[in-house]
Design a protein around this nucleic acid. Structure first.
Lengths: 204, 204
DNA sequence: AGTTCCATGTAACCCGTTACATGATTAC
DNA sequence: GTAATCATGTAACGGGTTACATGGAACT
């Protein structure tokens, strides 16, 4: 659904080739919002051209031929229509780290491994922040009022994550706590179920 | 990839049927991290049983028959193995609102529509926060140390989003600002390109 | 001469979602 | 009796990712 409009949006910024679009999508804020592969781009461009939303122009630059895509009148209208259409609430974002954390208590795993996961995440997020700062400082990047707001959003989210990680690791370095609420004694049952399953096997 | 481990994780919390798993995945923090449909659950359960990671038990409760799934020794080991495996950095989360915002400047759309989008998002996020608070207050919910940390993360993220929205709407209610940096005069070119495309059509 | 980069595409595959199909039980 | 809920599945479809295929230009 969204890939189509991502493409239209990129072209609206600056007419370019399919190859350029991938590079464009990997820069700045867009890189945090989309993941475009050639396998998605080219077939979609073909389709968009058939629908009359974009048109191409063969260009020869520095001995290289490429197809530069530009929006048609219908393309501009479709982009505007999409923009004004109420955006859907984002789908649950699958996050392996959070998912693992949720189930950490049940598998009797080592707490230090979880702390390691958290630290690794923090380091990666710090790198992303660095990258964004660098990109923003880059003199050639195009940033308008809206782009800056998006950038602020992403930064805020990353910074919130990083400070949460500090909090979480601090707590996990302390002694394990019993479940805060467990009316059905699930925690106790879990241990019993797990031991039973593992023991049964060793004795067979 | 992740669906398989989500299922193993849910079973590790409490043995249940495929039907129950969907309900479980729609409760609490998990609902913010996963989206399980029956079409994904049942085939996967079948497969997991063939692989020997789970086993079933036909149960008759209150006149209803259901297949209760429980982890095998291999299942518990696979879960533990997955937990300790370093989680990947989350993929770019496609967010329609942010995406639209990025391209807002190019299509000459009305700022008030964007403000409306932001308000709608804020309202939805507030509802999610309410839901989570209610779930947490619910006496029967199982929450351990790890689950609470996850819950804190989600809340933090939503609160950060909401305060960002306040900031963004406040700015958008003011007068439009010119692009902060635009070495190639893209903003000007955009307007020209758009007018040209739209004009050409009306005159043909 | 060989590797990297620019550039465009196709085809197979995986995976998840949607829609469909079924049937029993409980609530109104 | 009829609607809603519990309960389990299958089949088709769609969409994106991965891998593959090609070719010229530029750099080393």
């Amino acid at each position: 659904m969204s890939i189509e409009h991502t493409i239209l949006g990129i072209i609206s910024l600056v007419p370019c080739s399919g190859y350029d679009m991938k590079a464009e999508a990997e820069r700045g804020s867009l890189s945090m919002l989309s993941a475009l592969g050639f396998g998605s781009i080219y077939p979609r461009l073909k389709q968009l051209e058939e629908e009359g939303l974009v048109e191409t122009q063969q260009v020869e630059t520095e001995g290289r031929r490429k197809k530069i895509y530009e929006l048609t009148a219908d393309g501009w209208r479709e982009l505007a229509r999409w923009l004004e259409e109420p955006p859907g609430y984002p789908l649950p974002s699958r996050d392996d780290l959070l998912m693992k954390m949720l189930f950490w208590g049940t598998a009797g795993a080592d707490r230090t491994a979880l702390i390691e996961h958290l630290r690794a995440r923090r380091d990666e997020s710090l790198e992303v922040l660095d990258y964004l700062a660098e990109w923003q400082a880059n003199e050639t990047a195009f940033i308008d009022e809206y782009g800056l707001l998006v950038l602020t959003y992403i930064k805020t989210r990353l910074e919130a994550e990083i400070s949460w990680i500090a909090l979480a690791t601090a707590q996990l370095e302390g002694p394990p706590e019993l479940p805060l609420r467990d009316k059905q004694w699930l925690a106790v049952l879990q241990k019993a179920r797990r031991s039973k399953a593992l023991d049964q096997e060793t004795h067979s």
